[in-house]
Simulated scan of single mutants.
Amino acid sequence: MAGHEVIMKPFSDVHRLGNKVVATLLHDPTVEGLDVALYMDGSASMEDEYGPRGILAKLAPVKNLVEPQMRWMLEYLANKDRDGKVRVAYWATGDGSQLEEVGELTGPQAKDFRFPGPRAYGKATVMLPVLRDFVAHMKQQVQVGARRGLAVIITDSQISDAPNVTAYATQVAKEIASGRLPRMNFVFVGVGEQVDEEQMEEISHETYPGVGHLWCHRIADRMEEMAELVAVLVDETMTVAAGGTVYDEQGNTLKAYEGRLPAVLEFDVPATCKAFTLEVAGQRFTQPIPEEHEEDEDHHEEERAPEPEPVSAPAARKKHRGHGH
């Protein structure tokens, strides 16, 4: 390929072979501009999961079931985030309505970051402050390039303010539909027997005009299953908007993808076509088509990199309860 030919993001390689174009994606464009936050339950019911602290911690080895799951989730989520940093906070702390911010963590930081639990375990499980915090965070991040938001919320008990959560989510959906807020999704994961599954379903099954579902939820039986389940739900949530369409310069459809985009796109173009546009998740990426060279025709099979295996989370176990919405 000639040196003057420019390959635009999110593509890493583009070849023209007669009337066929082969375009390799550098990364998944459905998460372009995605800003991610992780909110971990800090209510009193979680105290045993974090393990003893202070003098009690010195009497026996501490078994913190939350920490390894948090590390795994953060490494996974940081790879989805636009700048590789995930906003992390404990919620339902103090009187139950307080948030304790941990910080903006990267994947490498997560490998050995300590998650001992909040300073003050909460007396209730009030979720509305989580939604308000994330909306305020997204309003700030939009100013510096964020185009979409994803909040992962973990709990092990019944929500204390479900009607307020539903009412606020309705307002958020109106703001999204009107263009005043970017697209947002909330991944809601319950852990253990104290979770109110019916309550989670009522929140998550709500649909909003012009937006559809904001929520997806599921329940893990044990803390050790939490990270895997979060990864599955995030993958499913991102896939919802993952279909894409390729257009020529006149806006004619060259190819439509209804499922997750493959790593290598192949489509036919008119002989006079000089550029194509990929539209995915409301974003458009225009790429000039390089001129065809003889060596491309002769050797493109050996030059083309093998299609990478799609990176996805492990399949959810059947015993996980709940639904995608």
Rank of each mutant, 00 (worst) to 15 (best):
E266T: 05
F267W: 12
D268S: 13
V264P: 01
G259S: 15
R284D: 01
G259F: 06
E258N: 14
E258P: 07
L278C: 00
L265K: 07
F276A: 04
T272Y: 14
T286D: 05
Q283R: 15
K274L: 08
T272D: 09
L278W: 00
V264C: 02
V269E: 03
R284Y: 10
P262I: 06
A275I: 03
E266P: 04
L261Q: 14
F276V: 02
K274Q: 11
P270F: 01
L278A: 00
L265M: 05
R284V: 07
E279N: 04
P262K: 03
C273W: 12
A275F: 09
V280Y: 11
G259K: 15
V264Y: 03
T286Q: 11
F285D: 00
F267V: 01
A275Y: 10
G259R: 15
A281E: 11
Q287C: 08
T277H: 06
P270L: 01
E266H: 07
A281M: 13
A263T: 05
L261W: 09
T286M: 07
T277V: 02
A271Q: 11
V264D: 03
V280P: 08
P262C: 06
F267R: 04
F285R: 00
L261S: 10
A275D: 06
C273V: 03
Q287E: 10
F285K: 00
A271S: 13
E279M: 04
E258I: 03
V280S: 15
A281I: 06
T272Q: 11
D268H: 14
A271R: 13
E258Q: 12
Q287M: 06
D268W: 04
F267M: 07
C273E: 13
R260P: 07
T272E: 07
P262L: 09
D268C: 05
K274G: 06
G282E: 14
L261A: 08
R260W: 03
L261K: 11
A275V: 08
T277N: 07
T272V: 03
E266F: 13
Q287I: 01
A263M: 06
V269H: 07
C273P: 01
E266Q: 04
A281C: 13
E258G: 11
P270N: 08
P262N: 08
V269T: 12
L265A: 09
V269K: 03
A271H: 12
V264I: 10
L261R: 11
T277K: 13
A281P: 01
R260E: 09
E258H: 15
A275M: 04
F267I: 00
P270K: 12
K274D: 09
A281Y: 10
R260S: 10
V264N: 01
C273H: 13
L265S: 08
A271P: 03
L265E: 02
R260I: 00
L265T: 01
Q283H: 12
D268Y: 11
C273I: 00
F276I: 02
F267D: 02
T272H: 15
V280I: 10
D268F: 09
P270I: 02
L261C: 08
T277G: 05
F276T: 03
F267L: 04
F285C: 01
A263P: 06
L261E: 11
Q283W: 12
E258V: 04
L278M: 02
T277S: 09
P262S: 09
A281Q: 13
G259A: 14
G282D: 12
V264M: 00
A281K: 15
K274C: 08
